[in-house]
Amino acid sequence: MLEVVFDNGSLGGADWSNRAVVLEALPEPLVAGYPAEGAYVQISDGSGGIAASGWFSVDERNATETHASVAVVWREPLMAVEHTYKSWTGLVRTRDISPVTVSPGAAPAWFGEYVRPIHERAAVERTLQAVRESANTERANHREWVRRLSESACEWADENSLCSEFERFCEQWGLEGRERDFDVEVNVTVALTMTRSARSQEDADEAVDLDDVRQHLRDNFSYLDVNFTVGE
């Protein structure tokens, strides 16, 4: 057996800063259709890139014929005697897993113990994500229920001439009231540019009077349905 020295601190309460032997032979795959535990593989990201490369492990509790939760562990620097270990986890399709012909060697003998807490952490993260998604769905469904209830209540209030009472009720309970049409008056100030022939800017400014402004508005903005007044 080969003997290597590695330094990886601790994971899941276990101390991996010691000397260990490597696996002499790969075990049988935990899940049919997937590589054996400790096989050195490459994980594709599904778009032509590489998500991770390293020793492979599958979580048999979350595996189907098409995809599974897997962990990949590798060491850095890759071929150095003194090194640290890193890991990657994700839901992977079987077609995105491929063997690597050139590898740093067999997985350490403690590989199974090392990946166990990694799989457990990934399972907890998936559970939390599912809970968050479920909560978001429940909130969205509740908002939709409140919206439909408010619409039905608005129709009932209109049909029974209870509009004012209904509006007070909605305001008291923080519900959406009825939508109605309102007229909104908006005051807009417009700056115009008119061309005048003159010997100076001052003469040109003095040549423009209110009648010129009104005529300019009529000539250039007649297509707008607006009422306008010209300030002195």
Rank of each mutant, 00 (worst) to 15 (best):
D209M: 07
E3K: 07
W55Q: 03
D225F: 05
N136D: 11
A39K: 02
W88H: 06
A63K: 07
V188F: 11
A123Q: 11
R218Q: 04
E65Y: 04
M79S: 11
V21P: 01
D183E: 15
V70H: 08
Q201F: 09
A20E: 10
T101C: 06
V186A: 12
G9S: 06
R143P: 02
E202Y: 03
V31Y: 05
S98Y: 01
V102Y: 07
L78Y: 04
E37W: 03
R139A: 08
N160I: 09
T127N: 06
L23R: 11
D219Y: 00
F182A: 15
W88Q: 09
D209F: 03
V188G: 03
D158V: 12
F111K: 06
A106M: 15
D205A: 12
G231S: 12
N141C: 01
V131K: 10
E144H: 14
N141F: 02
R147P: 03
V115E: 07
A109Q: 11
E82N: 12
A204F: 08
D183L: 15
N187V: 14
A135P: 01
V5T: 10
E165S: 13
S87H: 13
E232M: 05
R143S: 04
V184E: 13
E113G: 14
G112M: 08
D205V: 12
Y34Q: 02
G174Q: 09
S152T: 10
E3L: 14
A80I: 06
L149Y: 06
S53I: 02
D59S: 07
S69C: 14
I118A: 05
A140Q: 11
V5Q: 06
E82H: 11
R178K: 14
E155G: 08
N187I: 11
E144D: 13
V184W: 14
Y223F: 10
S10A: 12
F228M: 06
S197K: 13
G13Y: 06
E76S: 15
A68R: 03
L91T: 08
T101E: 15
W74L: 00
D45E: 02
A107E: 03
E37R: 12
I118M: 00
P77R: 05
A71P: 02
K86H: 15
E151Q: 14
R148W: 03
Q172H: 14
P108A: 09
N18E: 09
G54C: 01
T189K: 06
V230L: 03
G231F: 02
S47R: 10
D158E: 14
R218F: 01
G12V: 09
E28R: 14
E179T: 15
P99T: 09
A207M: 11
R148S: 10
